[in-house]
Design a protein around this nucleic acid. Sequence first.
DNA 1: AAAAGTACTTTGTGATACAAAGTTTGTAAT
DNA 2: ATTACAAACTTTGTATCACAAAGTACTTTT
Lengths: 99, 99
Amino acid sequence: MKNFITQLNKAFESRIRLGIMSILMVNDWVDFGELKETLALTDGNLASHIAALEKEQFVIVRKSFIGKKPNTAFQVTQEGREAFQSHLAALEELVKGMK
Amino acid sequence: MKNFITQLNKAFESRIRLGIMSILMVNDWVDFGELKETLALTDGNLASHIAALEKEQFVIVRKSFIGKKPNTAFQVTQEGREAFQSHLAALEELVKGMK
DNA sequence: AAAAGTACTTTGTGATACAAAGTTTGTAAT
DNA sequence: ATTACAAACTTTGTATCACAAAGTACTTTT
């Protein structure tokens, strides 16, 4: 009766991390600037949310240069993909119960 | 592109409040003790989350006596119902985008 | 009188969110 | 060579939140 709530992942409770994940789920290698603009975040805010997701090993970070400019890009890991899908499945249960 | 995230309501970000609301959406007048057990919360924890929802006017609280025992029960308001449904709709958008 | 039940409130601690400003490293312009 | 700029952080500071545990108030049961 309460399991669908305990299955919700704490890492995905915040709107912003929900946004980051949903973008990374459908786009391979999204870069810092693009993500920042899409979600209308400050640098620091994005950096800290990414750090939280990286700590959980839900995303990986790649630092490189595009031409002469430094570029940081993110990709969702397999683990992140699975965790996020479970989270969404639990949310879906919740929605279903309401119809 | 980012609107479905901004449509997510901050009041419903926590697992616990998500749980409270989903129960109240399908049950009329749920009492303190029942909600507390269903969600496996401490008294204080439930009280504070309810207070947050009450402040937003998403739930109303009724204090009465059942026989000789004090009873506190909660009901979702129309406003709460609408806000929660919008929230779920936004989550559904998010899920849909991923299929 | 003592114990137990209901519903809180208070206290304390630790985590989180966020903005704003500062820092680092490397490139580009003058 | 100095200045300026850009990307991506890190730091700082403040405010809010989550939660457990203990305390409170009132009533009822034993």
